[in-house]
């Protein structure tokens, strides 16, 4: 199941969604808002996306993960909009018969999501400035 939402993420709901008597393992990754990046202090984050493509890419990644691992249930939820420190921006939860597959599949999904899904994070620094995060892009002057 794929969802992009402006509502707070409910990790318990994700666990319930993927739990199954066919599975012996449930693995969940939660991405949360970190206060410090190197020495820079974050006040909050903002996430934006290209909605149609982001949903499509997440669904394609779920399908690709199901082709590689025997996944019983899978739930990926990404949050958009304003996030306070400590709040979750993403949950990837899935269940498999055995734990190794679940660990591998969650890690693979997170790595792919961070490379392919058109979602962007904007840092709202404690000094009052804001900055879109674009790995590999030289700093822009505005």
């Amino acid at each position: 199941m794929i969802q992009i939402t402006r509502d707070p993420i409910d990790p318990d709901a994700a666990i319930r969604q993927v739990s199954s008597t066919q599975a012996g393992a449930v693995v969940m990754f939660l991405g949360t808002t970190r206060e410090f990046t190197a020495e820079k202090k974050t006040r909050s984050l903002n996430y934006d996306c290209y909605p149609e493509m982001a949903e499509r890419k997440l669904a394609e990644l779920e399908t690709a993960a199901r082709d590689r691992w025997p996944i019983v249930e899978c739930s990926i939820v990404h949050r958009l909009g304003h996030l306070e420190l400590g709040e979750a921006s993403i949950v990837v939860a899935l269940s498999t018969a055995h734990r190794r597959d679940a660990f591998e599949a969650v890690q693979w999904l997170m790595d792919r999501i961070k490379e392919e899904v058109p979602i962007w994070k904007e840092e709202h620094w404690a000094d009052g400035t804001t900055e879109w995060v674009h790995p590999g892009l030289p700093p822009q002057e505005n």
């Binding site: 921006s89 899904v117 979602i119």
Partner: peptide, 10 residues
Amino acid sequence: VACIPPVSGG
């Protein structure tokens, strides 16, 4: 058509 700067979701 969309311009996709390096992504930073997750």
